[in-house]
Design a protein around this nucleic acid. Structure first.
Length: 476
RNA sequence: GCGGCUAUGGUGAAAUGGUUAUCACACGGGUUUGUGGUACCUGUAGUGAGGGUUCAAUUCCCUCUAGCCGCCCCA
């Protein structure tokens, strides 16, 4: 989806690509021929997140939100579509994200727009647009939502993926870098995931310039030893050589100049302080002098959260990352404003949870099942259902089924503790049957007291259940 | 974007160049009309799409599509 093919896009009608029209016609013909409709197809790299997975996702979303609030971040929702040049300017034209992965197109108003490939730039834009520099600094924002990159899909990598991000504008203080790392670390800890924190500093653009020159001249004599990929990196983004996975690179890298040695004094001091804070609060981190990040806007501290599991070599183990980006706000037209932030990849986090066998229920398990026989019972049942809901007792039902047998079967599948049964007879008597699903014992109670009776019966077991369902956030 | 592997009902598997593609689970209906967990009966549903070779293709070949793995990149 190259972004620059717009040149001759005429100003006239936003003619939809003719190709698409043809295809649509094809589709119709196919339908006619086969009689049956061709099955609908998902776009490549897009997916549905099904109900079975929602438990994990809720867990992730809840943890993120709880911690965002605990660290006093304010929620912001940003548009999914932005002017394309926002990302071009910030993420960096040389990056793959911009060069070939951005969903960019001309909208009906003849404007070049793009589905956001990330949200930091939007945050910075919002910060400027809404004059947030006139609020008490720092301004701490968090968001969550879908991002789009037209990348080659793989497990844990989708073209529409979800990120939760945290951004802090308006402070240079190294303690902020450290706190962001702590925050990210805590999110993973709350989720029960083991992550390693890797940190590095890539200094200011000026100090980096000098380092890049040095790095390039170090590699140039070895040019013939480099792989094609690495040669390209040497040309395009020498920093990327540092995290090359090529075999032969290890020895070369060992001798290569280290960026930390090239930082100016202020950068060094900043980084040292960040590390001191991390030690103080005992976040285990690994200094990784080869950690560089793909987005061009980073300055000083960069960090990544890497899943620490049995298969450390997996490409999708980076669950999140971020860093400081002191130049970004100014780059898009704001006053010079220091800032830093990070984002976590929720798809990968959810996947990691699944691999750990963590799969919370997508909603509270129903504890009671309501079985009904006949229309009179249904009418009463509809009302009864509301009573239970107000008493906050989750009730399941199978209004779609008539036979009591089928309803009990459904109740059994749901593993409820009690089924309440309402038939013609009970409606006339103003009573209702309550059946203990484990023992099969039944008793008849006054229908007006059923909610109270059930509540009482459940309360004995409730304590145990509450412990089970307790959010791990509350742990330790 | 590059390289490799893969593709059979909703899920997991089986089979074959030649009758009607097998099995389990899941799902729906039922086993004389108001009682579940085990049993029995029964139903729905599949060879990813398109082309080629062949008398005949789910099986062999090609293209496409999608997924997975690695690279690139990144979350």
């Amino acid at each position: 989806m190259p972004f620059n093919k717009k040149k001759e896009a005429p100003k006239a009608a936003p003619a939809p690509a003719p190709k698409k029209v043809e295809k649509a016609v094809d589709g119709e013909e196919k339908e006619k021929k086969g009689g049956a409709k061709a099955p609908p197809e998902l776009l490549r790299g897009f997916r549905d997140i099904l109900p079975e997975e929602q438990g994990k996702w809720n867990f992730v979303r809840d943890s993120v939100r709880n911690l965002a609030e605990a660290y006093s971040f304010d929620r912001i929702d940003l548009p999914i579509l932005e002017r394309a040049d926002l990302f071009q300017r910030t993420v960096g034209k040389q990056t793959d994200i911009i060069e070939k992965e951005m969903y960019a197109f001309v909208d009906p108003s003849d404007r070049m727009v793009a589905l956001r490939p990330e949200a930091t730039a939007s945050c910075a834009r919002a910060y400027i647009n809404h004059g947030m520099l006139d609020r008490p600094q720092p301004v701490k924002l968090w968001y969550e939502g879908a991002m789009f990159r037209h990348d080659r899909p793989q497990a844990g990598r989708y073209r529409q993926f979800y990120q939760a991000g945290f951004e802090v504008f308006g402070t240079h203080e190294p303690i902020m870098d450290a706190q962001l790392i702590v925050l990210g670390y805590q999110i993973f800890k709350d989720l029960g995931l083991n992550v390693k924190v890797q940190v590095n500093s890539i200094g200011t653009p000026e100090s980096r310039q000098a380092y890049l020159a040095e790095l390039t001249s170090y590699f140039r004599p070895h040019r013939n030893k480099l792989s094609e990929d690495d040669k390209r990196r040497l040309q395009k983004s020498p920093l990327r050589l540092l995290d090359s996975k090529e075999e032969g690179m290890k020895e070369l890298l060992a001798e290569a100049p280290q960026i930390l040695d090239w930082l100016d004094d202020a950068s060094k001091e900043h980084f040292t302080k960040v590390l001191e804070f991390l030690e103080e609060i005992q976040v285990p981190y690994v200094l990784n002098p080869h950690l560089v990040r793909g987005l061009e806007y980073y300055t000083h501290t960069v960090f990544e959260f890497v899943l620490d599991n049995d298969e450390p070599e997996r490409a999708q183990n980076a669950l999140g990352g971020g860093g400081r980006y002191n130049g970004l706000v100014e780059l898009i037209g704001g006053r010079p404003t220091p800032a830093c932030g990070f984002a976590i990849g929720m798809d990968r986090v959810a996947k990691a949870l699944g691999e750990m066998g963590i799969n919370p229920p997508q909603r509270p398990d129903p504890q009671v099942f309501f079985a009904q026989l006949g229309d009179a019972a249904r009418r009463v049942g509809l009302k009864l259902y509301e009573d239970f809901r107000m008493a906050q007792i989750p009730v399941a039902e199978a209004f779609g089924k008539n036979a009591l047998k089928a309803q009990l079967e459904a109740a059994n599948k749901l593993a409820v503790q009690y089924t309440i049964i309402l038939g013609q007879k009970e409606v006339l008597d103003g009573t209702i049957i309550i059946r203990d699903m484990e023992s099969g014992a039944q008793e008849i109670v006054d229908i007006n007291k059923i909610v109270a009776v059930v509540k009482k019966k459940l309360s004995s077991e409730k304590e145990a259940r509450v412990v089970v369902h307790q959010s791990p956030v509350a742990r330790e």
